[in-house]
Computed example of a mutant assay.
Amino acid sequence: MTAGGPDRPGGVFSRSFGHGPRNVLAVHCSLAHSGAWRRLAGEMAEDITLTAFDMLSHGRSPDWDGTGNYQLLNADAGLALLDRPADLIGHSFGATVALRMAMARPHLVRSLTLIEPVLFAVAKSDAPAAFAALEAASRPIEAAWAAADLALTARLFNRMWGAGEPKWPDMPEQARAAMVRAIPVVPACYPTLYDDANGTLAPGALDPVAMPVLLLHGSESPAVIGAIVSGFSRRLANARALSVPGAGHMLPVTHAAETAQLLRGFWGPA
């Protein structure tokens, strides 16, 4: 593994895993960090060299100062690491960042893999019932945030979207503190994710995303994710969607071997 400090392009920390011929850039989910790709990269160490960066307010990257658009700032940071064409992977919020990267620089993206993308505006438009269920499930998180209880907000968010293990009290204090540090960016991104404030779904906006796209979701994920995947399948010209049996939202971590197998089939030979 190799790593670069926060003086790297875009001011973010990045690291690389593996030593294979295929160049891959990966964007992690909210409240995680670049190390979340370690298991998947380990499954494919002979096939790929995977570079991952810590989004702002995550891992070893600087804190976001609240100015500018968080999604687009991270997309710019990721693009600064792309000096040649790569296969791009994003998970959850990181998938929305990866999508914006592909929209901005399609000539640098050989293929795009969106794992459990959380652009909820897709479901808001296409699947009102699934969107309403998401809103209902999120109410305890919203109440904790309104009460300015950052630790409870992070705990409830992790319970809803995390792998389920370890439980919050069993996590190392450092891991809990990292999630509390990152949690303010989640509500800050609601206009982007719920209302499509960045215009990802605007007419013609997705036209540059003509490269092959793989949409992955877990069979046990909330229904809203399946609705989003279906919506993107209809909106992207060259997309295919696959479900990982028995997996939830954290499938790149919990089902790394299955994810690796699907990626090999999608990419084909290096």
Results as ranks from 00 to 15, higher is better:
A202G: 11
G218E: 03
V109S: 11
R235T: 08
E135W: 00
P166I: 04
L236D: 08
T49K: 09
E116W: 04
A257Q: 12
P191V: 06
I115K: 03
G218P: 04
L81W: 07
K167S: 13
A102I: 06
P187L: 02
F232L: 15
A45T: 13
L79G: 13
A52R: 09
G18H: 10
M101E: 11
A133N: 01
S111G: 14
N238R: 13
T153C: 14
T96W: 02
V180Q: 10
G35D: 07
E142G: 00
E43F: 02
V24E: 13
T113H: 11
L206D: 10
D195Q: 11
A143R: 15
G78F: 04
A205R: 15
G20S: 11
M44A: 14
L201M: 13
S34C: 14
P208T: 05
L79N: 11
S219A: 15
A163P: 11
N238C: 02
P140V: 03
R15W: 00
G59K: 04
A202Y: 06
Y70E: 07
H255L: 03
H217L: 10
G94T: 10
A163K: 12
I228L: 06
A143S: 06
D195N: 12
P21T: 14
H107W: 07
S219R: 08
D47A: 15
L242W: 00
P140H: 02
A227H: 03
A175Q: 13
W145E: 12
G90I: 04
N238K: 05
T192K: 00
P245Y: 04
